Amino acid sequence: MLNNHHLAFTSSFLLLSIAAIHVYWGFGGLWPGKTKQELIDLVFGKGNKFPSPFICLLVAVFLFFFSILPIVWILKEELSLDDKKIFALRILLTMVSMIFFLRGIFGYFSFITKQWKPIFIYYTKRIYNPLCLIIGLFLLLQILN
C-alpha cells in the first residue's frame, strides 16, 4: 500500500512533469506533435489556435504550485503549521483533487467528446483521463490518511 510519502512524491512528480510540458509548449515546443495543428489535435482535440505562451506558462505556474501542496502536507508538522493553515491546506488539496477528478471523469462523456478530434478522444480516454484520475485520487488519499 502506498503511504503518504509515496502519494506525495508521486503526485508532485506527475504535476511537475505536466508543468514542465506546459513550459516547453510556452516556449514553442511541439511534442507530442510535429506541427502546431497536430499538437492542437493531440492535446486540445479541436480548433486551430494554440494558447499563447503566456497561458501555457500560467498553467505551468499553477501546476507547479499544485505540485508543492502534497509535499507541504507531509511536512506540515515539521513546518509547524497551525490548525487554520492545515485546514486551508486540506481545502486546497481537496479542490485541486476535485479539479483533476472532474477533468478525468468528464472526458469519458460523449456529450463532451463529440466535438473533439478522434485522435484526442483516443488519447484522452487512454492517457489523459486516467492520469487525471490518478492524480486526483493520490491527492485525496493523502488528506484522508
Score class of each variant (00 low, 15 high):
21 I>S: 11
118 P>N: 10
17 S>E: 10
95 M>F: 13
70 P>F: 01
41 D>G: 09
40 I>L: 04
116 W>F: 15
13 F>I: 09
24 Y>S: 10
42 L>K: 02
124 T>N: 14
141 L>G: 03
63 L>I: 05
57 L>F: 06
120 F>W: 12
50 F>N: 04
124 T>W: 03
118 P>K: 14
40 I>H: 03
96 V>G: 09
68 I>Q: 03
114 K>H: 14
123 Y>V: 06
64 F>C: 10
77 E>I: 15
73 W>P: 02
17 S>F: 14
115 Q>D: 12
77 E>W: 13
42 L>W: 03
55 I>V: 14
47 G>T: 11
55 I>F: 15
80 S>P: 01
63 L>Q: 05
4 N>I: 03
5 H>E: 11
100 F>L: 07
57 L>M: 14
66 F>M: 01
130 P>F: 02
109 F>C: 03
10 T>R: 04
138 F>T: 07
125 K>Q: 11
110 S>R: 13
64 F>N: 02
80 S>C: 06
101 F>P: 00
105 I>L: 09
41 D>R: 05
79 L>W: 13
16 L>A: 07
107 G>K: 07
41 D>L: 00
140 L>Q: 02
99 I>G: 07
95 M>V: 14
127 I>P: 06
37 Q>P: 01
14 L>D: 02
90 R>H: 11
73 W>H: 07
88 A>Y: 13
31 W>Q: 06
145 N>E: 14
34 K>T: 10
107 G>I: 07
48 N>Q: 04
55 I>Q: 10
85 K>A: 15
51 P>V: 05
16 L>P: 08
103 R>K: 11
23 V>G: 02
108 Y>V: 04
24 Y>K: 10
18 I>L: 13
144 L>Y: 00
26 G>W: 00
145 N>I: 15
56 C>V: 11
44 F>S: 15
59 V>L: 14
128 Y>E: 09
121 I>A: 05
104 G>R: 11
136 G>F: 08
144 L>Q: 06
104 G>H: 06
123 Y>G: 06
8 A>V: 10
22 H>C: 02
22 H>W: 12
74 I>H: 06
47 G>C: 04
144 L>P: 01
133 L>G: 05
53 P>F: 15
7 L>D: 02
88 A>M: 06
62 F>E: 08
81 L>P: 01
71 I>E: 07
54 F>G: 13
55 I>D: 06
134 I>N: 03
72 V>F: 13
40 I>A: 01
34 K>W: 13
145 N>S: 11
137 L>W: 08
72 V>P: 07
68 I>N: 02
47 G>P: 01
19 A>Y: 14
43 V>K: 02
54 F>V: 15
75 L>K: 11
86 I>W: 03
30 L>G: 05
133 L>W: 08
91 I>F: 07
129 N>C: 14
69 L>Y: 02
134 I>K: 08
5 H>D: 14
